[in-house]
Each structure stands twice: as structure tokens, then as C-alpha cells.
Design a protein around this nucleic acid. Sequence first.
DNA 1: TCTATACCTGTAACCGGTTACACATCGGTT
DNA 2: AACCGATGTGTAACCGGTTACAGGTATAGA
Lengths: 327, 327
Amino acid sequence: MTTIRDVAKHAGVSVATVSRVLNGNGYVHEDTRSKVEQAIRELNYTPNEVARSLYKRKSKLIGLLLPDIMNPYFPQLARGVEDEMQENDYRLIFGNSDESKKKEMEYIQTFIQNNVVGVISSTNDPDADMYQDLNIPVVFLDRTSNDRPSVYADGREGGRIAAREIVRRGSKAITLMQGPANVRPAQERFEGAAEALAEQGASFQVLKTTSFSLSRAEGFAQEVFRQYPDTDGVIASNDILASAVLKEAHRLGKRVPEDVQIIGFDDILLSSLLYPSLSTIHQPAYEMGREAAKLLIGLIEGERMERSSVEFSVTFMERQTTRKVES
Amino acid sequence: MTTIRDVAKHAGVSVATVSRVLNGNGYVHEDTRSKVEQAIRELNYTPNEVARSLYKRKSKLIGLLLPDIMNPYFPQLARGVEDEMQENDYRLIFGNSDESKKKEMEYIQTFIQNNVVGVISSTNDPDADMYQDLNIPVVFLDRTSNDRPSVYADGREGGRIAAREIVRRGSKAITLMQGPANVRPAQERFEGAAEALAEQGASFQVLKTTSFSLSRAEGFAQEVFRQYPDTDGVIASNDILASAVLKEAHRLGKRVPEDVQIIGFDDILLSSLLYPSLSTIHQPAYEMGREAAKLLIGLIEGERMERSSVEFSVTFMERQTTRKVES
DNA sequence: TCTATACCTGTAACCGGTTACACATCGGTT
DNA sequence: AACCGATGTGTAACCGGTTACAGGTATAGA
């Protein structure tokens, strides 16, 4: 491996001079600069980031913690983060937390040990000590925190919109699927929907679900129609669940949207590919990821951030699992 | 930040002794060990991996390079890799290459600069210098290399199976979608299918596609029926394209599988959620990711690897976009 | 001519770990 | 009692960068 000393020797200068050329600071004579640059090219030298990081006590690494990259919603966030980071020469250390505090702690720990300069996390507990005690910037993504920077979508409003739209389109016996109790965004959607349904005097039942995994989703979908056979409208807590419900409706010979309307949440790729395509609450996941990354970079590079949190608004994607109606 | 010197002072020993306790090597008196361990606990000390990495010239970091995490196939690979790595205390630096050599090179570069001890890459060009010149283990995932370790599925056989199954089920005018020319697995699938179709004397047309992105997929799906209106069987190069074809068939009022049969490739989450659910060639992506990680860890830790490449076999997932037939 | 200042460069300390080596002690053998 | 290997511990060099500081030269101004 070529080191800065090799370059220095090859160019006939000291390591300090090479370092100055590398970092573009301090005085370096133009001729010297050329010699060094040539040596760098000839030896195909790139500086060791580890040595750099050790001395400066900071790296170009960012920790990214998401619940589960296999859940189709998260890759969009991840990609948004990655693209923005890549463009700014930061690299990501990535981990799946499975919404587990233990795994989160392990990752945060190793992030620190590797001198990351910032963390983006989708945690359900932004107030946990591990985040409070961190002395590097943290941005919470797809999650809210009162006093820390966060980037999230207005899930409560999303729930309300779903409720209004399904009622407006004529569903009378609505089943509201409540996501895992420990997943905050899921609860906000649920609360928003429940509120709006109550306000409008709509009758609805609640079906609790405890997981977003596909295998469980099919079971929950069956429960909807087993427990509430007269259901004519379903608000699911995400698109996976909504898809499972749609499939189950097909299986039971119910027509969608004539007999049952379905509204999902997230607007993942899958939703538009289904038949009928899924009406859902769209979250701009990719943009959210990018925004979180931007925010974090600003924090790292010491800019005064006027707005430390960003709320994205959600929109109703009217597709084919809801009925057409005059606006 | 607490350093090993703080711990040494607090325990009344030298840094060498603390280091010995930390790494469990050399002689340390039992009483001394306890004192040090207590100091570590009291100061809540964790060693700085950067300093460690600098001296040892290796880290606990692995570089993972995938084409695009938003393509639903890759998160499964990524998760498989991550789980295996996590269990073995390795961490991942992750990047999307977009099948672009330039981006690949940038990432490989920074991987090296960060002292990664191994790389897992889905590249279309395993023989490129950047991989040949790497003096750390590399495992190619979802791609084949003649002389380097790789983990992949038998795409050619997958293509053959798809061809046989669709012919056996009665399709007479088959359209074969050929994926992007620079994506190797896509070409292998295509070649396998074309071979088997030819062997069986089936008549078929080819439609070239140049991208796997959703937005383009819908256009390609329309082309299928525009260019070959009598198509009664489609073999798509992945499930996204297959889904788009299925949707287009619906739109055109064609019955699936009665009028058109469709077979996809990958078996992503989406496939089983579609209606009718998609018949496809299943690749064990999660397991492949895990296997690649296992292989790489073996290589890193210096085990003699008896088999340096692993080929996974693919299976036909008979679902609802193909007709039932006696076996 | 003398001095102040900008320009240019090198030496060596430092970041926080690991480890080679030196040295000391201890228990057991002959 | 002398000797030996096993055990226990500390000092300092080292990993590959960055940078404080010192020292030197050139140029301009007094």
C-alpha cells in the first residue's frame, strides 16, 4: 500500500508538503505542487481515510439505521439518503434494526466506534439515552421527535384523509387495521383515521395487527372478513396489508371497489402494479430520505439550520380500489 | 471520549495490560483482569475501531455494492448479507452502483480507503482491473465470474424451465422479453429461454427492453401487445416487467392465463400479492445473500474454502398466470 | 541597509489503539 | 542453592495521516 511517505520520497519533499497539496491548505510553491501531484498520479496514491479519521476524530461516514430493508417502503428512503450522501462524498454504514432496541444500540455503538459524523435513524424511541447522549448530529427519519431534527410525513393527516375519502365514497362498515403498537407512524395513521371516522359519525371496527411481514399479512387479511364479514371498506396501515386484503377479497369473490373499498398507506411500487391498482396515501419516501441527508449534512458542516425538522405532506392517490365520485 | 489511557489510569495499570484484557491475549493476572474490567465498566469504555484498524491494517467493515436497492429484488440479497455479517460482528458500507462502472470504481476506492476487509459486489464486469487488483477477498453476488468466488442462481436453467413450462401449458405465440444488454443475469435467462424454445420448435418473438425501472416497464409491456398482438405467452426477464405485462393484459381485456400466460423471474414479494398471482422462477435471494456473506467471511478469516463458488438452483413457482396441466 | 511580512518547507508530536521486547517474579527441579 | 520456564507487567515504537511550530528565503518598504 502506498503511503504519504512514499509519495513524499518519490517527489523529494516532506510528508507535510504532500499533506498540504492533498488538502489544499497552507503555502505550497506551484512547482512543488506539480511535482507532488505527479508523484501521486504515478504511484496511484489515495490517502488512507482511517489514519485521517483517527487524527481528526471524524470521518466521512454516516450511520443509517432502518427497521427492515426488505419492507418495500424503506429502500426508497435508503436510496434517497444514499444519493444525497454520495453526492457529498459521505459513505453509509447501514444496519437493520428490526424495530429492536437491542440491535439499535449495538449499531449506534459501532457507529461511534467507527467515528461516524452523523446518524440517520428510524427509531420508535428518539428520546432514548443512546440518542440523547450522542454528541454527533442525529436526524430521525420517518419518525418524529419533539426536540431533535426529524423528517417525517404527516401520518395523522394521512389517516384523516383516508377516512374522509372512504366515507365520501360510500363505505358504511369500515374496518380500520391498526398496525403494530410499537411502530409510531402506524399508530399516528390509525389515530388520524379513527378521529376522522368518529367525527363523521361513521361506524367502524378495529383490527389490531402486530406485524408488517408478508406471511402475517395474509392471516390478518383473512381476519378482517372473518371477524367483520359485512366490511365494505378497509383502511390498512400500509400497502402490504392492503394488498393482502385485496387478494383475500378476490379469493372470497368480493368485487373491489364495488363491494369493498380499500385504501393503503405508503404508495410503494407494488401498489400501482396491482390489479385493480391500489388507492393509497402517498408518502414521498425518496424525497424524505434525501431531505434527511441534506439536513444531517447541514448539521455536520455546522450550518445554522433555520428549520430543524421537516414535515412532508401526504396525498391521496386515487386509483382503482376506491369508487369514482364527483368532487 | 474515553480512551484506553483513561482506563489504564483508572485501573492503575499500563495501556498494554488493558489491551491484553480487551483482546484476551497474553498473560494477565486474574486480579488485574477484574480491576481492568471494572474500570472499563465504570468508564463505559469501548475501544476506538479506527485506531485499531489503523494499526492492524484491517477493520470489521465490509463493502457491499448493489445495482439499485429500490429494485425489489436487491433488498433481499442485502438483508441476507447484512444478517450474516451482523451475526459475525462485521458492518457494511453500502452503495448503489446503478450498473455504472464509474460509480463502482468510486465505491471500491473508498472501501479501500476505509480498510474494508472484503467486498461483495453485483457487478457486470468481475474481470475489471478494479477487482483483479484488489488484494482483499471479493465475492460476486448474483453474478458469475470464472475464476473468482461468486454466488449466483442458475439463470440459464431458469430460462429453460420458464420456456418448457409455458410451452407445456400450451402457449403457441410466445414473446420473450430480453433484459438490458449489459445486465448479465438478464442475458443468461434470455439465452436459456431462447435455447429451450428453439429446441422445442416453439415459435417466438423477442422484445428487447433496456431498463428494469417501473416507469419504463409499462411502456415495454405495451410494446409487447402492440408489436405482437397475437402473443399468447410472455416470458419476462423479471417480475416487475411481468407485472407490467399482466396489468397491460388486464387493460386490454385479455384473460390471464386463458388468453395469455405470463412467467416472471425473481419471485419478489409483489409476485404472490398480485391477482392473479404471478407464476415465476424463484431465486432464493435472501439465502444467496447469506451464502455470499458466509463465503466472504471464510475467505477473510483464512479458512481454506473447498468450494469457492456456489450456484443456487431455481424453481418454478406455479401460481395463477399459467394454466393448470397434468404432470 | 535594515526590517517586516509573505511565502515555502521540514521536523516532530499527535490521534488511540496493538504488540515486540525487556524485565521482574514465582514455583518447581535438580 | 542454582536454574529454568511460565507468568505478569510496563515502555516505547508503530500504523498513516495532520498540523503546530520553527526556520529559511524573497520582496517590499523605511
